[in-house]
């Protein structure tokens, strides 16, 4: 109980003191997960939309693969990415192991199936008649798809929120491929593991609270982009 309370006080102190180490850890967490989410969105939203609309035979297998990917344990992804970039791996020459680049690669692998899967579900939920009507009215296929995505935007934002939540909070992959190097690859989750292992429960709690606060603010932002908050108000 004591640790919980002192952790909370410590969190407030840390946040308001703008501790340089902490600022850097937070910035790196946002940078790595932000870029990973951006890449996942650029690839996952169009792919998910296509998957939601297509009637090809391969659809079933691809969907099964995506659903499997949505449950990938981050530590397994981390192991895989570690082995590719390791000195004995195929991409050793890039020298990406223990750098933010490797962390981004791992997080894209974790977030992409989440973004694609939820986008697909959202797009499938839109009335199929809509696309036919739009095409009949002379819209191009790309225009029709964009209109459907706009219609399914709540689901698409859920996809982005799920992807972001999945990667900002994961520790297994970034620990393995980033190495938790102070000042270069240490992010919030790996810092929490470290502080806990050192018995610094107060600092660990503080970092945990900051992580939650960031998640909350980002989700609020996504919601307001989508118009959800405003609509609830009116």
């Amino acid at each position: 109980m004591d640790e919980l309370f002192s952790g909370f006080i410590h969190a407030l102190q840390l946040i308001f003191s703008l501790d340089a180490t902490l600022t850097q850890i937070v910035a790196l967490s946002l940078q790595v997960s932000g870029i990973a989410l951006g890449i996942s969105a650029l690839m996952g939203v169009p792919f998910g939309a296509w998957l939601g609309l297509t009637r090809r035979r391969a659809r079933g297998i691809i969907i099964a693969l995506i659903y499997t990917g949505m449950g990938l344990p981050p530590v397994v992804v981390g192991l895989f990415v570690y082995l590719i970039f390791s000195q004995s791996g195929p991409f050793a020459n890039l020298n990406w192991l223990f750098t933010p680049n490797a962390m981004i690669v791992a997080q894209v692998i974790i977030a992409l199936p989440l973004v694609a899967g939820f986008t697909m579900a959202a797009v499938s939920g839109v009335d199929p008649e809509l696309r036919q009507q739009l095409l009949a009215l002379g819209a191009t296929s790309a225009q029709a798809t964009r209109a459907i995505l706009r219609e399914a935007r709540t689901g698409v934002f859920v996809a982005l929120a799920a992807g972001f939540g999945g990667i900002i909070s994961e520790v297994g992959a970034v620990m393995l491929v980033g190495g938790n190097i102070a000042g270069s690859t240490r992010v919030l989750t790996t810092a929490i593991v470290l502080e806990t292992r050192q018995g610094e429960f107060g600092r660990a709690m503080a970092l945990g609270l900051i992580l939650l606060a960031i998640s909350f603010v980002i989700n609020l932002g996504l919601l307001s982009l989508q118009g959800g908050v405003i609509r609830v108000k009116s």
């Binding site: 190495g179 938790n180 190097i181 102070a182 000042g183 270069s184 470290l194 292992r197």
Partner: peptide, 22 residues
């Protein structure tokens, strides 16, 4: 930690040795 040659990784001995090997 500002010295880039000095890498403080906050992990156990085995992890640290594997890191050094890489």
């Amino acid at each position: 930690k500002e010295m880039l040659w000095y890498q403080s990784i906050g992990q156990g001995m085995s992890e640290t040795l594997i890191f050094a090997n890489e």
